[in-house]
Design a protein around this nucleic acid. Structure first.
Length: 520
RNA sequence: CGGGGCGUAGCUUAGCUUGGUAGAGCGCGUGGUUUGGGACCACGAGGUCGGAGGUUCAAAUCCUCUCGCCCCGACCA
């Protein structure tokens, strides 16, 4: 709710612009509402008339395109190739893997008719039922498996490493923009291997790739590991995931990679003749990240003035704002801005030319400036008549307070622009790391655990909790219990080094600490 | 799908209890004054009050039904 817009309030209390934030409410007032307001203010997306779906606007889509471009080159570099499989899955394909069906059945959209007719009342109604209904893919294991069954004959055909960029549909009860929508954009890799070891290695390779991508490009640190049985992908033998912490201290799954064993190979008939000349079911993996990453990014870095974008993912990295206050100086200032943009576009950051935009719209300077703040552009440059006289400009960084500005010569800025972007990139990652560190702790008693995850104010819960590293006896019952009591779940069981201890709930032996948190 | 709340201009909303067919702020348009800053003044456009039925001389306001949205739960990238 925006109190500042209330007329009575306004008359009694003129808005103090020195403390007003661009986004209302602030994060500490109402985090979910803040999230929605940032999406609107930054023009990332808006809800569509179709429940659960969203319109992704150019600024939001630009971020996704950068995710695509950068991830795609990482996939290519590891030998994966893109392909495209149909949106529609025959119902019969879908029914092949029992667990898988059970996992997705409740959220499937099903196409049953092929034509519309006008009925007696003049309304359009579906006609001509299909003999076999088509499921709109909630994920593509089954339909891709059908192709793979044909393509894979021999161990010489393996490994088969394919990715597709696609939309999928999972009918959602409670949608949230970017985080959980009925239709969403993602990437799904599907690979086939000769041996169990190779397939397991592939799943891990991609997990590490995701971790690197999210850290280096989105500036979000993650914990990675294996999912507990209850959180496993339907039909998978092992599900790996990366988990980020966002600013309300909740966890968000930012990417998953599954080792599917031979389950899907068996269901789809993916067999090959092995080196010994025998028929064998292949070993498969699947893995994906979705446009949820955009929401993750927002919640990880955004502040009370809107979005804050890491330079590596920002559609525009530097925006140049001409301060053309007097008509006569306007042409010279515009020229200087264009000239600067041209020079900057010849420079590189992270192996790509700088993305620079000159905002020449005829708008009030303040309005323009705030728009770009809300959109999270990493660097804002102002050039006015006085700067031009000194051949200088004014620089603002989005990772610093709005009022913080620096002046430097145009020439110098051109030289150091990539360094500034790099510094912002590093700074955001560092900040996110510190935040996560402060809100992560080892917990060794049940009482402390419950205390950690219980808000002080139960009526209107404040931001609380975080990540807890605690010992667990490995039982599903305890997980269930904790989930019921606190809405806290095991996010991930870290891979690698063990640290024997005792389950804090039962006192039973535990091989390692697992990571607990409230999750999106 | 269960429990709670809400639908009035692009956004935020006043009015509803005690019926008399709409008012504001922001945003938008035009003109002007401004300009290192989310500026100011004037004028202006924009709403059949979610939809359908009913009560009434008269409905945003009362009644019934319906649709949609939000929050809380079960499910989830």
């Amino acid at each position: 709710m925006c109190r500042l817009n209330c007329s009575a309030f306004r008359m009694a209390n003129p808005v103090d612009l020195s403390t007003k934030t661009a986004i209302t409410p602030r994060r500490d007032e109402d985090f979910p509402e803040w999230y929605q307001q940032v999406i609107r203010a930054a023009e990332l997306a808006e809800p569509s008339d179709v429940r659960g779906c969203m319109v992704i606007r150019p600024w939001g889509y630009g971020i996704w395109e950068n995710v695509q471009r950068q991830l795609d080159s990482m996939f290519r570099a590891t030998g994966h190739r893109n392909a495209y499989f149909p949106l529609f899955i025959p119902l019969s394909y879908f029914a092949k893997e029992a667990e898988h069906v059970e996992g997705f059945a409740k959220e499937c959209a099903v196409v049953t008719h092929t034509r519309l007719e006008v009925d007696a009342a003049g309304k359009m109604k579906p006609a001509s039922p299909l003999t076999e209904p088509l499921v709109i893919r909630p994920t593509s294991e089954t339909i891709i498996g059908a192709s793979y069954a044909k393509w894979v004959q021999s161990y010489r055909d393996l490994p088969l490493l394919i990715n597709q960029w696609a939309n999928v549909v999972r009918w959602e009860m409670r949608p949230r923009l970017f985080l959980r929508t009925t239709e969403f954009l993602w990437q799904e890799g599907h690979t086939v291997h000769e041996t169990e070891g190779e397939a397991r290695a592939e799943a891990k390779l991609i997990l590490d790739l995701y971790e690197r991508f999210v850290r280096d490009h989105l500036a979000v640190p993650v914990f990675s590991g294996e999912k507990s049985e209850s959180e496993r992908f339907p039909g998978a033998v092992q599900t790996l995931s990366i988990e980020a912490m966002v600013q309300d201290r909740r966890a968000i799954q930012a990417g998953t990679s599954h080792f599917l064993g031979q389950n899907f190979a068996r269901a789809s008939g993916i067999q090959f003749q092995n080196r010994a000349g025998q028929q064998e079911f292949a070993w498969t993996t699947s893995w994906g990240v979705s446009a949820r990453l955009v929401g993750t990014l927002l919640m990880a870095h955004g502040d009370d003035d809107g979005l804050v974008l890491p330079p590596r993912i920002a559609p525009t990295q530097i925006v140049i704002l001409p301060v053309a206050t007097k008509e006569e100086s306007r042409p010279r200032i515009m020229e200087a801005c264009d000239n600067l943009a041209l020079q900057l576009r010849g420079k590189y950051f992270a192996d790509l030319p700088l993305e620079v935009e000159v905002d020449r719209r005829d708008l009030g300077g303040g309005v323009k400036n705030w728009e770009w703040i809300k959109k999270g552009v990493p660097v804002r440059i102002e050039i006015g008549p006085r700067d031009l006289e000194k051949n200088s400009l004014v620089v603002s960084r989005r990772d610093q307070p709005v009022k913080t500005k620096g002046s430097m010569s145009i020439q110098e800025f051109v030289a150091v622009a990539p360094e500034i972007l790099n510094s912002i990139q590093q700074n955001l990652l560092e900040r996110a790391r510190e935040f996560r560190e402060v809100n992560t702790r080892k917990i060794d008693s049940k009482d402390e655990f419950y205390d950690f995850f219980t808000p002080k104010n139960s009526a209107k819960p404040e931001i609380h909790g975080g990540f807890a590293f605690a010992h667990w006896n490995g039982s599903r019952e305890i997980e269930e219990q904790i989930k019921n009591d606190l809405k806290v779940t095991i996010r991930v069981i870290p891979l690698g080094d063990s640290e024997p201890g005792r389950c804090i709930f039962t006192g039973e032996p535990s091989a390692r600490r697992v990571i607990w948190a409230k999750a999106y």
